[in-house]
Nucleic acid binder design. Structure first.
Length: 123
DNA sequence: GTTCTGACA
DNA sequence: TGTCAGTA
């Protein structure tokens, strides 16, 4: 049975204006992340996005990753990695591999599907 | 007035 | 990523 807490965290209650203020991300960026399926806000009858507390927290994490220099690919892998139910140890191992391959100092995209990394990342 | 999608002198 | 257009 789903807890009341989980229920509340998934309630679609925030408008785009509220989320842009709380996350300090532009509406453009938020929509962009949605097209990449990093978040999946529900829609109102008028097709307006309705974000949940979970969506907001997800956006805040994406924001921190962007600021650390991750590109869309790296962020996608990290988000998807967290959604999988793996042991903390295994999750940490994957995270380190992802960091080494995608967190570039000069914020440049790096191909990461060659060699060892492919063994840790599900395509 | 706010949000949405698509597009780029 | 910003921003403008044309809607809903």
């Amino acid at each position: 049975m789903q807890s009341n807490d989980t229920l509340r965290r998934n309630m679609p209650v925030f408008s785009m204006s509220v989320v842009t203020k709380l996350s300090e991300l532009s509406a453009r960026q938020i929509r962009y992340y949605e097209t990449h399926e990093l978040i999946k806000p529900q829609r109102s009858e008028g097709n307006k996005r309705l974000f949940s507390l979970n969506d907001l927290e997800r956006l805040l994490e994406i924001k921190s990753l962007i600021e650390k220099g991750f590109n869309m690919r790296g962020i996608k892998q990290i988000i998807h990695n967290e959604q999988e139910h793996l042991s903390d140890d295994e999750q940490l191992t994957r995270k380190k591999m992802i960091v080494e391959a995608t967190q570039k100092p000069q914020r440049e995209a790096i191909p990461i599907n060659r060699g060892d990394l492919s063994r840790f990342i599900k395509k």
